[in-house]
């Protein structure tokens, strides 16, 4: 029983970086912008979070800086695609290549330096409950933050005027423009929010999950987050489900390796999350799922305001 709870709690932890990255990208995509640079923004957040936490000694300052770093990367993307009308796919790839290089450069002096792990924040009263306590209420602030952020985004998109405008911009930018909304400004904000979230996801990896800096430590999580958004059919609460699914695959794979359950090399087990991503993409592209895959109509389409 305790073992199962610990396992499920580990799944929640493992899903946190994916949840941050995916919920941010979801908001950007709902506004009609496809940013393939999630991996690069996460790495920028990871290295910044680590470096700032190490130098200031404050995890919170580190987390804040990581969010700013992610948003700064997103700003580069936004200027290129929204103001200079560059191709979104190519610019997103450039952002990832740049992020891999820049984070390796900044982090080159930090490789091998240990960092105190982001402390656990037990919720008073709730953390002592049986089962539910260790499962849900004995995590660090970023784990709570990722779930809270997802719920907040779900509420914002579904229930608020701002959310409605954002969706309108993503579905039909010409109509939104005609109604007097500034499409470009709204997209800038959505893309910056996406970068901020990716930065937080990166920071979780480098100061909480494995508190150290390793080159390319995101290991494709930014790309898996992109797949998660498609899997979730652009709905925030389904992102939550998807993130737990992928967190589950990660933990399963780690435990199977640790226990030596299967007589295969560890590398084969490590392939599982990537293969699972492909399988999920295939499953949602065939059969009854397909009809429900409604991408925002203006996703990836550039908008040039005519006067």
């Amino acid at each position: 029983m305790d073992g199962t709870v610990a396992l499920l709690a580990a799944v929640i932890v493992a899903s946190t970086p994916l949840l941050f990255a995916a919920i941010g990208e979801l908001v950007a995509e709902r506004s009609g912008v496809l940013n393939l640079g999630v991996e690069g923004m996460m790495l920028a957040g990871a290295v910044t979070g680590f470096a700032v936490t190490l130098t200031t000694g404050s995890h919170l300052v580190g987390i804040g800086s990581a969010a700013v770093a992610g948003a700064a990367m997103a700003l580069v993307f936004a200027v290129l695609t929204l103001s200079l009308m560059a191709n979104q796919v190519a610019t997103g790839l450039a952002l990832t290549i740049f992020g891999v290089g820049l984070s390796a450069l900044v982090g080159s002096s930090f490789v091998g330096t240990p960092l105190p792990r982001l402390p656990r924040l037990d919720i008073p009263g709730l953390s002592d409950l049986p089962v539910v306590g260790p499962l849900l209420f004995r995590h660090d602030v970023l784990v709570y933050g990722a779930v809270a952020l997802t719920l907040a985004v779900a509420w914002f998109l579904a229930k608020t005027r701002g959310g409605m405008i954002l969706r309108a911009v993503g579905e039909n930018h010409e109509a939104a423009h005609g109604l007097g909304y500034n499409v470009i400004h709204i997209r800038y904000l959505a893309v910056l929010f996406g970068g901020l979230c990716a930065g937080l996801g990166g920071a979780f990896l480098s100061i909480a999950y494995t508190p150290m800096w390793i080159e390319q430590m995101t290991a494709g999580r930014g790309w898996i987050a992109l797949a998660l958004v498609v899997f979730a059919a652009w709905r925030p609460l389904r992102v939550l489900v998807g993130a737990y699914l992928f967190g589950g695959v990660t933990i399963l794979q780690l435990h199977a390796q640790g226990l030596g359950l299967f007589a295969v090399p560890s590398q084969v087990m490590s392939m599982l999350p990537y293969i699972a991503t492909i399988i999920v993409l295939v499953v949602i592209s065939i059969g009854p799922w397909k009809a429900r895959l409604q991408a925002p109509a203006c996703l990836g389409r550039p908008f040039l305001p005519t006067n």
């Binding site: 450039a94 952002l95 992020g99 290089g101 450069l105 080159s108 080159e215």
Partner: peptide, 8 residues
């Protein structure tokens, strides 16, 4: 790593 930054 400067190489990667230049390329980006």
């Amino acid at each position: 790593a400067v190489t990667g930054v230049f390329q980006g």
